[in-house]
Design a protein around this nucleic acid. Structure first.
Lengths: 205, 205
DNA sequence: CGCGTCTTCGGACGATTGTCAAGACTTTTT
DNA sequence: AAAAAGTCTTGACAATCGTCCGAAGACGCG
């Protein structure tokens, strides 16, 4: 195989992958709008400039598409939260930054977070996504644990709970705030901010 | 209207309601099996001894049925958790009892709790159940708050967070444990037990 | 018994679903 | 330019969905 052929082939493959990503991103928008239970392949296609038949050219079936969507979502999550470990010189600053960060995330993209929780629940019924979902949960847990450790360092203590427990506690606050936020409660973001800020010191000895 | 007629009518009405409850309970089993997204009226009927047409005799439409299911579920929840405030003479005993209680609930009926989380997510997409779901959340929050207050009394302190935050934290631990339990993690129940036991003292000043 | 009301059944409907295949259009290769 | 490969549209399919309806069964009352 010549070098030129390799480049050409690579280009085709990458174009194929690029369209896959494009379609998956449109599908994510549809899913965020309607939720897993109410999203069909045709409504997904309506979120693109293409027809519904094309989806089966780029994806084997619906499960394949949604699995790929979840992976895309995960990539976006990791990328977004990777540089999110706030820089702060005092534990109070870090706690505030952490609360603000999560409250902003809640306010900026509530529908995407709603979708994430939806898919995570679906993974309890269908084991097709289970693995992917578990990986996302894992990376979110690690992201949060970095913050907890940074807070412990700044305050001169050590974390007094497991990373899994810390993540579960933060996630509980976030999900409850999302629930209220979508129900129209104005104070949901502020409550989350305060909840996070007061939670952090509780996790340190 | 004669007295006899009243009795007859009452009897008819109560028989009508009784069958509604019966069908709703069967529907809950189907929902617990398959989840909201995958449960149709015909699969619900297959969980009963009746045909699918009967469902529309007792319920106006599918939303009516599921709404009634959620109400039934709520009634069961409140009844179950109302007498669950453990009797303990030391804070340590109460913390252990609380952890054991939630861990047992997780182990006894994981599918029902999975359904609860599913419906709570659906309430974020469809506002039909939103009210009912919020009421259930409220009662669960109150149940947990009774335990937190009892713990505070026994340990001679006062709760240092809001009821909503306390519930969110407990719920986060429970949901994460459920996720792991259904994924096959053997230690999920024990982790939940420990998580609850160590969480309670953190909420008290 | 006969009549009327309450229950239940089972088939049918139109709409929607996931899937697929045949063909048209576009781009690349020879 | 011809041929080939890749991309996209369209229409159809079988299955399933929620819903509705006519008829048959069950039951109570005169």
């Amino acid at each position: 195989m010549t070098s030129a052929a390799t480049v050409r082939r690579r280009s085709r493959v990458s174009k194929f992958d690029q369209r896959r990503r494009e379609l998956a991103d449109a599908a994510l928008l549809a899913l965020a709008d309607l939720g897993y239970a109410r999203t069909s392949l045709r409504t997904i296609a309506e979120h693109t400039e293409f027809s519904h038949g094309l989806l089966h050219y780029y994806f084997a079936d619906k499960i394949d598409l949604i699995t790929y969507c979840v992976q895309r979502y995960k990539a976006a999550c990791v990328e977004r939260y990777d540089g999110l470990v706030a820089e702060a010189s005092t534990p109070e600053q870090l706690a505030i930054a952490c609360g603000d960060g999560l409250a902003d995330a809640l306010g900026d993209a509530p529908l995407m977070h709603r979708l994430w929780y939806d898919l995570r629940i679906q993974s309890m019924f269908e084991d097709t996504f289970r693995e992917e979902v578990a990986e996302i949960d894992e990376s979110l847990q690690q992201m949060l644990w970095r913050n907890v450790r940074a807070y412990a360092d700044l305050s001169g203590g050590t974390p007094s709970c497991s990373p899994a427990d810390a993540y579960a506690l933060f996630d509980g606050l976030f999900q409850q705030a999302l629930l209220r936020h979508l129900a129209g409660t104005e104070t949901a973001q502020d409550d989350l901010r305060n909840g996070i800020r007061t939670l952090l010191p509780r996790l340190i000895d």
